[in-house]
Design a protein around this nucleic acid. Structure first.
Lengths: 355, 355
DNA sequence: ATGATGAATTGAAGCGCTCCAAATAGTTGC
DNA sequence: GCAACTATTTGGAGCGCTTCAATTCATCAT
């Protein structure tokens, strides 16, 4: 009943392993084998500088012979602390978050700290469960890339050090986020610098805080240039499909009423626009309409006309967050919470400027 | 020196938390507070059916008042086993693997088991390190989506139950993989069923075992249909760029020499082809050339002409693997290793058949 | 009431490791 | 050769929790 084979399945049975279960090799066994005290084995593993080379060799040999694998549960219990940190990620399907994980991992490993991940999968209940799990595991610290609009109270009140990624709206903890307003400003300034004056922003600022921030940046850039205008085209979502719908709408306008520069609030949205305009011989990209995306997705790369975009420094976010967390772990008394805001950068491709 | 702020950073200092560090709430404290014995608290947590409702209430109240968080390290040590399983993933940037993680998680959570992830990031050394970490943590079991061509010896020899995902070439452990040969067969049969007779396979079978398998499936399908021919176009990689290069090459052929059906060994490759053919008014998709991809990536969805593709059952792989692992964990003596092979499925879109 | 029976609770023995005071071995200077 | 140190090694006391035999409580038939 429990083991229900999947519908279609070729099964080849093999005999169960009859290896002697070495489930029971403990440090004590190693000590005995090496002819030293238990504490010495522990020292070889954790403070080798306190042990003579001769003894180290004996112990290492015994460890190999016995296939000893230290028990971290016991270690964590005795030492009162683990050397792995847990990272709770809102959505692993989003490469932005995976980049953060990579950055955090890289930095942590420089200090010999491991990082394990838990996927929230966009579900609030899983976020809480994962957070709990890591706290119960007595992880040295937690990195949290929260769901948008998550309850800060629930998350902050605890003894385990915790830093927030991609969310600046938390007090009482370190946060690392990226300046979306500046990203919008960068994209718009780029278009304006190319001589575009009739800009259009695609996306709904009321739909998400980051998009609202981007929109504000665009507004600011436009306000700085005399004669520049800005139109807002709200889209229900930011998928390629929405971009195509908007694109079709724009192709039906008289060309003088069309924008000559579009800031899309996401790469997929930009992709949809490029697909439609690219298929219309009367519209040239970037001569007639220049388009920028946002996020530096694969989609932007893989478009027939590669899309200019705003790159979010995911790895850097992860690394800075790990750095802050390690500081809090190591120096709990002197640690001060920091709100770090990183800057996105413009990646110019063919959708705004001919190569 | 340690805390090196990133180049650009706005910092807002806040006072360190002066919350009473409740780092020290133990089960014993809860017991005292509730006026019961230590063991009773443990029972409330693990065997509530053995405890009277009145006592449960008292204990739960005390837990809340004290903010007690059970220590899993101690639990794992005392119980000799954890209830979380570790999953080591070759490449989290690949959504196929993320799907597997999601499937494993879903199934495990049905049994109250947690899943934590570690990203190998395509590096062999990290794969070994992560595996070690999980074994040291005494995870209940390990799910491994290994790097291609990984050393089976290193991986198998251990006491912790371990099942391999997306890799059938391992003996002495359960494996769950997908039938690439059948996938290739499906794609080719689809095209042949649409009346196509001059097929072309895009991709290099010598580059990876799965691609070779897919190619064999295509060959088999072609062999079954009289008059059908198959051409092999080797591409150095399977990116959109390679698809475009091949596409350009094909547009330069006389139309009678062109294939009327293309099986691309990956979606991005198909995307590149569709981009080129779509921009050439003399070639209609799918009338002149029908194209299939492989993997069911976002890229296939988001293409201007959505691409027919082969969907790999990532979630199912994860779920079946978790199921096998749980069986091995629960019934170590009766467990038999199983090699489960799942079937991919065809997803028809506009690149082969007009909607 | 009384003993019997089962349910609820208790309390202590570990789980495997780290940490540290104490004991021992090894060195150096005179 | 001996005191004075320093470098190693030792062994035992926990870390916080699960387990389980033993004990106490509650019920019920007699």
């Amino acid at each position: 009943m429990f083991f229900r084979p999947s519908r279609i399945m070729v099964s080849i049975m093999s005999t169960p392993e009859n290896v002697a279960s070495h489930a029971a090799v403990r440090m004590e066994d190693v000590a005995k084998r090496a002819g030293v005290a238990l504490g010495t084995v522990s020292n070889v593993l954790n403070q080798p500088q306190k042990v003579s080379q001769k003894t180290i060799d004996k112990v290492v040999l015994a460890i190999d012979e016995l296939g000893f694998v230290p028990n971290r549960a016991a270690r964590a219990l005795a030492a009162g602390t683990s050397n792995t940190i847990g990272m709770v990620i809102a959505d692993l399907s989003n490469s932005f978050f995976v980049d953060m994980a990579r950055g955090a991992e890289r930095l942590a490993s420089e200090s010999g700290i491991n990082v394990v991940l838990a996927n929230t999968d966009m579900r609030r209940s899983k976020q809480a469960a994962n957070l709990n799990l890591f706290r119960q595991e007595r992880m040295a610290g937690i990195l949290l890339a929260p769901l948008p609009g998550a309850d800060p109270t629930l998350l902050t009140s605890n003894a385990t050090p915790l830093v927030f990624l991609n969310d600046a709206a938390i007090v009482g903890a370190c946060t690392v986020s990226v300046d979306n307003e500046h990203g919008g400003y960068l994209a718009a300034s780029h278009l304006l610098g190319l001589g575009r004056r009739r800009l259009l922003f695609a996306g709904d600022p009321d739909q998400a805080v980051p998009i609202a921030d981007r929109y504000r940046g665009v507004e600011r850039a436009v306000a700085e240039v005399a004669g520049a205008t800005l139109e807002l085209a709200r889209t229900p979502e930011v998928q390629a499909e929405n971009g195509r719908e908007l694109g079709i709408e724009l192709t039906q306008r008289a060309s003088v009423d069309r924008p000559d520069g579009i800031v899309a609030s996401a790469d997929l949205l930009a992709l949809g626009l490029v697909q439609i305009f690219g298929a219309d011989p009367s519209i040239r990209i970037p001569e007639d309409i220049a388009i920028t995306g946002y996020d530096n997705n694969r989609a932007a790369w893989d478009s027939l006309i590669p899309i200019t975009t705003i790159d979010q420094p995911g790895e850097q976010i992860g690394a800075v967050a790990a750095e802050l967390l390690l500081d809090e772990i190591r120096f709990p008394e002197t640690h001060r919470h920091v709100h770090s805001v990183l800057q996105p950068s413009l990646v110019v491709r063919a959708s705004t400027r001919r190569p």
